[in-house]
C-alpha cells in the first residue's frame, strides 16, 4: 500500500521548471529510492515534499492527506521528517539540543527523554559527545545526528536526501546499515541517492529521475537488467 503518493508535481525556480510533472509512490514499510544525476531535481523534490518549496501544480498525498503547498510544520506534524542534504545540523548547539530541536513539534514532551536515550543507545558516539557543539563533530557523526534528529519527530515516513554525500566508504556502509535497521523496525523510507551501488543493497523499489522527469520505475532486479541504467549508473562493476 502506498503511504506517499506524488502526482504530476511541477516545481519551478522563477521561470525554470526543475520538476516537470513528477509522479511516484512510496510503499508502506519499504525503502524506496530515487536515483539521478546532479541537477536532475532530486533535492527539489525533497524540498517540495517537505514544504520548503511550493509546487506550481500537482498533488502530494500522505496517508490520504494532501500536503502539496502546505508549510513544513504541517508536513512534519503529519509524520514526515527529512534528513536534509548536507545534514544541516545546528552547529552551535550541543548534540542534545539538536535532538531536542528535532522533537520541537512533539506534544508528548514527557516521552522525549526516553527517545533521546534510545537514540544514544543506537549511536553511542552521540552520547559521548552529547554536550559537544554539533559543528565540532565529524561528517559521519553529523550524519548520524541528522538522522537521529529526524527520528526525534517519530516520523511515519523518513525522507533522506543523499545521506552518503561526502562521507568515507566505511561510514557510508554504516549509514546504510542503519537505514536497513530503521526499515526493519517499521519506518518507511524514501531515499534520494547518487550512490546506486549502495542503494541497490537496501532499496525495494527504484525510480530514476533525469531533467525533472521520472524515466524509470521498477524493482532492483529490473534495474539491474536495464542496459542503459547499467551503463550510466552502475558502471562496469555490475
Amino acid at each position: 500500500m502506498a503511504v506517499l503518493e506524488i502526482n504530476d508535481i511541477v516545481t519551478a525556480y522563477g521561470k525554470i521548471e526543475a520538476l516537470k510533472g513528477v509522479s511516484l509512490s512510496v510503499a508502506e514499510g519499504k525503502i524506496t529510492c530515487l536515483l539521478g544525476p546532479n541537477g536532475a531535481g532530486k533535492t527539489t523534490l525533497m524540498m517540495t515534499i517537505s514544504g520548503i518549496l511550493k509546487p506550481q501544480r500537482g498533488a502530494i498525498r500522505f496517508n490520504g492527506q494532501d500536503l502539496a503547498g502546505k508549510p513544513a510544520r504541517t508536513v512534519v506534524g503529519q509524520g514526515v521528517a527529512l534528513v536534509p542534504e548536507n545534514r544541516l545540523v545546528f552547529p552551535e548547539m550541543t548534540v542534545e539540543e539538536n535532538l531536542k530541536a528535532g522533537a520541537y513539534l512533539r506534544r508528548d514532551a514527557g516521552k522525549v527523554p526516553s527517545d533521546i536515550a534510545s537514540v544514544y543507545e543506537r549511536f553511542p558516539r552521540l552520547q559521548e559527545r552529547r554536550e559537544q557543539y554539533a559543528g565540532t563533530l565529524s561528517g559521519g557523526e553529523q550524519q548520524m545526528l541528522a538522522i537521529s534528529r529526524a527520528l526525534m519527530a517519530r516520523p511515519k515516513l523518513l525522507l533522506m536526501d543523499e545521506p552518503s554525500l561526502g562521507l568515507a566508504p566505511l561510514i557510508v556502509e554504516d549509514i546504510f546499515r542503519i537505514v536497513r535497521e530503521l526499515n526493519n523496525e517499521g519506518t518507511t523510507i524514501f531515499l534520494v541517492e547518487q550512490n546506486a551501488h549502495m542503494a541497490l543493497q537496501v532499496a525495494h523499489h527504484f525510480y530514476l529521475i533525469e531533467q525533472g522527469k521520472i524515466v524509470f520505475d521498477g524493482s532492483p532486479d529490473e534495474m539491474e537488467e536495464d542496459e542503459v541504467i547499467k551503463r550510466a549508473y552502475l558502471g562496469s562493476k555490475v
Binding site: 508549510p71 536534509p84 544541516l88 545546528f90 552551535e92 530541536a101 513539534l105 529526524a150
Partner: peptide, 23 residues
C-alpha cells in the same frame, strides 16, 4: 525554554529550523 531553542535554531539555520517544524 522551547521558545529559546526555536530562536537559536532559526538563527543558526532557518531552513533546518523549518525542517524541525518550527514556524
Amino acid at each position: 525554554t522551547r521558545f529559546g531553542l526555536a530562536i537559536r535554531a532559526v538563527s543558526e539555520n532557518p531552513t533546518a529550523a523549518k525542517f524541525m517544524g518550527i514556524n
